[in-house]
Simulated scan of single mutants.
Amino acid sequence: MTIPPAALQTAAERFGTPLYVYDAAELDAALLRVRAAFGAARVYYAMKANPNLTLLRRLHAAGVGFECVSPGELARAEVVGASGAQILVNGPAKSDAEYAAGARLGATFIVDREEEVALLPPQSQALVRVNPALAVSTHDHLATGAAGSKFGITLQQAPRVLEALRAAGHTALGLHVHIGSAIRDAHDFTAAFGRLSELREETGPLAVLDAGGGWGLDADLHGIAREAWAAATAFGAELWVEPGRYLVARAGTLLTRVVGTKRTGRNFCLVDAGMTELLRPMLYGAAHPVTPLWDGPETADWDIAGPACESGDLLARDISLPQPRRGELLAIGEAGAYGAAMSSTYLTRSRPAEALYEPGRHSGADWTPIRRRETPQDVWAAEI
């Protein structure tokens, strides 16, 4: 956690809880780490990790492009000023709206299946997404490069699809590979790039190799970058990368207040945030660091439980805490990715506010609100 506890207390008092807060300095530092490792590679942010417009504007101003997987994400990219080579359109089941918006913006399409060639707008630029059929070190739901995944085409299909793109009048830029998210073992990337090298003789030189993202937060980026550049160089290609979670996860913290405690078969610390604010623990079994913002001797191991009527509504298990007291704050770390992005209004819960920490940016104020808290009326506003 990079934001001082006193500043977190201030944010909670000002904006209420649950609350997503982001550290601008950590966001900038993560991008610097990527650029230091990957050098001249073109960087596209996988917007699905966190689509807040303030964060997108900051990344766009830093020269980062966007990988989009829905009409809404394309609309966000356009709103912050991105166009043309700054936008990639990805996804296994693109809609007509996505093809139309991508064509209007001059985006590059990532072809995910052979039949998609016939669906592309005339004279499109495209990459072909290849599935290397690997077992990788992440949760099954995050393993997009596994043989049973819905993503990409087979290695055997790739040369044929590249040729089909050219025959249809499109620009076949090259290949794309993204094997998953939160990958723990860097050797998985080495294996994926090695599989791509099998295509070199059949494809000939390519303009672009898009190596995707998915690096674990503690990954050896320089090692991965060396392997990616070696693969790109073998094709004579420019290297593109698509970090998402890596750029924003550690910049974000979910603040939640203790509601009370309960001792049954286990010790529960009850809080005002849960699966509607941070779904990853329930969806992927993800473990997020938990920091209590109060002092005292550690009393026991606690499960951090949210308010939803779901047994799986747990933010963490077996966390050693000082005796929890009603009103105290917990900081759930690494929540900048897929926290707000996956938040929901299940149980007609209003989605939280979001705030950016940037000390010294504004006179007398370290915090900038970047999303207001929803009201119940906001939640049902579209209902008839």
Rank of each mutant, 00 (worst) to 15 (best):
R250W: 09
A251C: 11
V290T: 02
H176C: 11
N90H: 14
P205S: 02
F38W: 08
N131C: 08
G306T: 01
E238Y: 02
Q125K: 15
L239G: 10
L314S: 00
A97L: 11
F193M: 11
L270N: 03
A6F: 04
D303S: 13
T108S: 10
L8C: 05
A75C: 07
L56F: 03
F189T: 00
D301Q: 14
G145V: 00
T264H: 07
T171I: 07
M282R: 14
G194A: 11
A6V: 13
V379A: 06
D318A: 15
W240T: 12
L8T: 12
F235H: 05
A249L: 00
N131W: 10
G145A: 05
H141K: 15
L206S: 06
R361V: 08
W240H: 15
F15M: 02
S343V: 00
Q123E: 15
R351V: 02
A353P: 01
L329W: 04
A85N: 12
E98S: 13
R184W: 06
G333C: 06
G339K: 03
L239D: 06
A168S: 13
L270H: 06
Y99K: 03
T203G: 08
G296S: 09
P359E: 00
L293P: 05
P18Q: 07
R33P: 02
L162G: 03
P132N: 07
A46P: 03
A12C: 05
G274A: 03
L53F: 07
V241W: 12
L31Y: 02
G296P: 00
G194K: 01
A337I: 08
W229V: 00
A101M: 14
A147Q: 13
K94F: 09
L199N: 01
L279D: 08
L162W: 09
L330F: 10
R371Q: 13
E328I: 11
E277G: 04
A286F: 12
L254I: 06
A228T: 06
L142N: 07
G145I: 01
S344W: 02
Q156F: 10
D301W: 12
A192H: 05
G16S: 06
D23Y: 07
L55A: 10
L206K: 08
Q377L: 15
I153R: 10
G214F: 10
D295S: 15
A46W: 07
A331G: 05
L142A: 03
L88I: 05
